[in-house]
Amino acid sequence: MRSNLQKKLVKAMTVNHHDYSRLVGKLEARRVNVLKYQGDTTVDFRALKKGVFCTACGERLVRVNRNLFRCGICDETMPILEVAQRLIEEMKILNRSWTLNPVSIQKFSGGQISDFYIRKYVKGGILKY
Rank of each mutant, 00 (worst) to 15 (best):
M91W: 04
V15R: 15
Q112D: 14
K26V: 13
G51M: 04
R66D: 10
S114A: 10
L35N: 12
E90A: 07
K123C: 05
R63L: 09
A84D: 02
W98L: 14
I80H: 00
K50C: 04
R63Y: 05
N101P: 03
D75M: 07
G25I: 05
S3T: 06
S3P: 00
Y117M: 07
D75L: 06
R2L: 14
Y37F: 15
V15A: 15
N4L: 15
V10F: 04
I73Q: 14
F116P: 00
L94C: 05
R96H: 10
R46V: 13
H17N: 10
K123I: 09
A47F: 10
D40R: 08
K49G: 02
S3F: 07
G72Y: 08
V52W: 01
E59V: 10
D115W: 00
M1W: 11
R63G: 05
R30F: 09
G58C: 02
V83I: 09
R2M: 14
G110R: 01
D115S: 11
R70D: 11
K120F: 08
N33M: 13
R63C: 05
E82H: 06
N67M: 02
K123E: 15
S3K: 11
R66H: 09
V24M: 12
I73N: 14
I93Y: 12
I126G: 06
G58S: 03
R70C: 12
M78G: 00
L94W: 03
L68Q: 03
A47L: 04
E59K: 11
